[in-house]
């Protein structure tokens, strides 16, 4: 289904689809910003505090710059973003698509010879695949800033020292591998949500089940794929 949706990606820019794609981008990206901001900042702060307290015993707390930056870029940025998006946007997509199936809206589309995959899946897949890396960048920035704040206020690591240290070991590879991960996670979430939505059975119970399954399956796949991608890029 996802593959089929890929075939329709070119239509994302056509006039009739563009609006829907934009709307989905808005729903996925902008509406999730608030919750992502909080989660991202606190992820960075927790990372900084935990590693910082441990490192302080050796007088090495200036290294939190590297610790937070590398962990955020490589893993936590995409991972946290994916979890939030799976739980909020993914479940919403599953519920929406499920409701559409149950209320015969999907059937109506088929009768009108409008491919539901193109009409429903493609915009969501496109929006998630595009917005996930962008949100991951946002998460990274906020996480690193959060770490810097904790460093400055709790661990006596100045901003300057923090960022100098961060630059020392963080590489572009870390950033871009993280973004690749985020992209893959986006595709996973959209595919899972749409798939579960489309296979929703009759009634509100079916929709609820589709939503629940979407969150669980997305989480599991994100975890496993996250590991495997790390394995592929960092041997």
């Amino acid at each position: 289904m996802s593959l089929e949706a890929l075939l329709f990606i070119p239509t994302a820019f056509s006039k009739r689809s563009r609006q829907e794609v934009l709307n989905q981008c808005y729903v996925t990206g902008i509406k999730s910003l608030a919750v992502i901001s909080v989660v991202a900042a606190f992820t960075g702060m927790i990372l900084a505090l935990q590693t910082g307290l441990e490192l302080r015993r050796f007088g090495l707390q200036q290294n939190i710059g590297t610790a937070v930056t590398v962990v955020m870029l490589r893993e936590m940025g995409p991972f946290m973003t994916a979890l939030i998006i799976a739980a909020s946007v993914g479940s919403a997509i599953a519920a929406q698509v499920g409701t559409m199936v149950v209320s015969e809206e999907v059937s109506a589309l088929e009768i009108m010879s409008i491919n539901p995959v193109r009409f429903i899946v493609m915009p969501r897949l496109f929006a998630l695949a595009l917005m996930m890396p962008l949100l991951a960048v946002y998460t990274n920035i906020l996480g690193i800033l959060g770490g810097a704040v904790v460093g400055a206020t709790q661990l006596q690591v100045s901003f300057q020292a923090y960022f100098d240290n961060a630059r020392l070991y963080a590489e572009n590879k870390d950033l871009y591998v993280g973004l690749v991960k985020a992209f893959v996670f986006g595709v996973v979430i959209a595919t899972t949500a749409c798939h579960q939505g489309f296979s929703a059975s009759e009634g509100a119970v079916g929709v609820g089940q589709a939503t629940r399954r979407t969150v669980i399956i997305s989480f599991l796949v994100i975890l496993v794929l996250g590991y495997m991608l790390t394995r592929v890029f960092y041997r």
């Binding site: 559409m100 015969e104 059937s107």
Partner: peptide, 29 residues
Amino acid sequence: RSRFGVLFQGGALLQWLTAGENVALPLRE
């Protein structure tokens, strides 16, 4: 299928489009 028009039980209008856009959908597509 193009020879048919179908009125579904609940109407099956797409929730995120206005009534006008719903009616216009087959023509737009």
